[in-house]
Amino acid sequence: MKHTSRIGAYHIVSASALISVFLLSILISLVHKTNGAIAASHSHIRNHDDRSPSREREADGAFSPRDKSHYGSSDGHHSEFDHEAILGSTKDAEEFDSLPKEEAKARLAILVGKMDLDKNGLIERGELKAWIIRSFKMLSEEESKQRLEEVDENEDGLVTWKEYVQETFGVDLDSNPSSIPLNDIEEQQMLADDKMLFAAADANKDGYLDAVEFVSFTHPEEDPKMLPIVYQQTLDSKDTNKDGEIDFKEFIGDRGHDKDKKWLDDEKDRFDNELDWNKDGLLDRQEIISWVLPSNEEIAGEESAHLFASADDNHDEVLTPEEILEHHDTFVGSEATDYGDHLHNLEKFKDEL
């Protein structure tokens, strides 16, 4: 949020003018303090510029992974991802960030009891990973619900292709029933890809996407039936020799034209050692899907390992409730500020869980 204040030079010639300037200086001081508090708080706001599933891609064509924002460009760690991985909700994570420490710990203690699937009083790696996978699914559902509300123009709980195109691309299909006037080739491809995803997500083929189908559309990694569509779209985009597989040259495509040798070497190393599992120099169907749709299970395993490294103080490969609560700021975050009546009470939180 950007606040710009411009104060001109005034010749103050009266007592009332002096009072006005004094009051204005107080107001400016309060604004600066408020802005400082906002800047210091955690941000869980999603970027809504990428409103099309086809826009949620990396430079190489892969869908953006769930943990894309976990580490910054300078390898800085973003704790917001940890909080969302435990809470399964951006909104809940924002609320936890504002809770007093003891309130946050009390709520986290309830969650710890639910993570402990075998009720032995300890949280094992598998239990934490299972909890995080559950949280990722809840995050996808929350994000999809918010997006549906943006697109659902007539508020009937369903999304038509017409509503989606109108809201996302700014094109009214009633005015352009036969063609969609998009001048940008990339936008045209996004629209074509989205139409394929929309049709695949429409399980009952009624022309509408309900809340469940809309999750499949906006988060195809959550629905196995979407995988063949994503695979075919990737082949259409990159498989220039039409052999059903992708070699390194096809993987790089036009991205390599303005890159230096180091970039190409890094991409070759990634292709050979991360994507090409069977080391045959080609990406087959399974390898392509794994590349284009990063596995939430793999990301959950990495996040579980990260949280264990942060909280397993005695290195015994299990987390006790005490260890988790000792590191509550890593798991859910909190501020040592009492927001009084704005907080939900603990009993209500227990009921919701």
Rank of each mutant, 00 (worst) to 15 (best):
residue 216 S to Q: 12
residue 288 I to K: 06
residue 318 V to A: 10
residue 266 D to I: 01
residue 238 K to Y: 05
residue 272 D to Q: 15
residue 256 G to N: 04
residue 283 L to R: 05
residue 237 S to E: 13
residue 211 A to F: 04
residue 281 G to K: 08
residue 259 K to E: 15
residue 239 D to R: 09
residue 307 L to N: 01
residue 277 W to Q: 13
residue 250 E to F: 08
residue 280 D to F: 06
residue 221 E to F: 11
residue 264 L to G: 00
residue 248 F to D: 00
residue 242 K to Q: 13
residue 235 L to A: 07
residue 262 K to L: 13
residue 213 E to W: 10
residue 225 K to W: 03
residue 263 W to D: 09
residue 295 S to G: 08
residue 315 H to T: 14
residue 264 L to F: 08
residue 293 L to D: 04
residue 267 E to M: 15
residue 321 P to F: 02
residue 231 Y to P: 04
residue 272 D to S: 14
residue 304 S to I: 00
residue 218 T to K: 13
residue 235 L to I: 11
residue 224 P to V: 10
residue 228 P to I: 08
residue 233 Q to A: 10
residue 236 D to T: 10
residue 236 D to S: 10
residue 312 D to C: 05
residue 265 D to A: 11
residue 274 E to N: 14
residue 225 K to Q: 09
residue 293 L to R: 08
residue 298 E to W: 05
residue 266 D to E: 15
residue 245 E to K: 15
residue 285 R to I: 03
residue 301 G to P: 07
residue 242 K to S: 12
residue 232 Q to N: 14
residue 247 D to F: 03
residue 274 E to C: 12
residue 299 I to L: 07
residue 271 F to C: 02
residue 216 S to W: 13
residue 323 E to N: 04
residue 240 T to N: 08
residue 321 P to I: 02
residue 212 V to K: 15
residue 299 I to R: 09
residue 271 F to Q: 00
residue 235 L to P: 07
residue 234 T to L: 10
residue 243 D to G: 07
residue 314 N to L: 10
residue 241 N to V: 06
residue 259 K to N: 05
residue 254 D to R: 11
residue 308 F to A: 06
residue 316 D to G: 05
residue 316 D to A: 06
residue 232 Q to I: 12
residue 304 S to K: 03
residue 248 F to S: 00
residue 233 Q to K: 12
residue 263 W to P: 06
residue 245 E to G: 02
residue 308 F to E: 05
residue 244 G to K: 12
residue 258 D to N: 14
residue 266 D to T: 06
residue 257 H to I: 09
residue 315 H to Q: 15
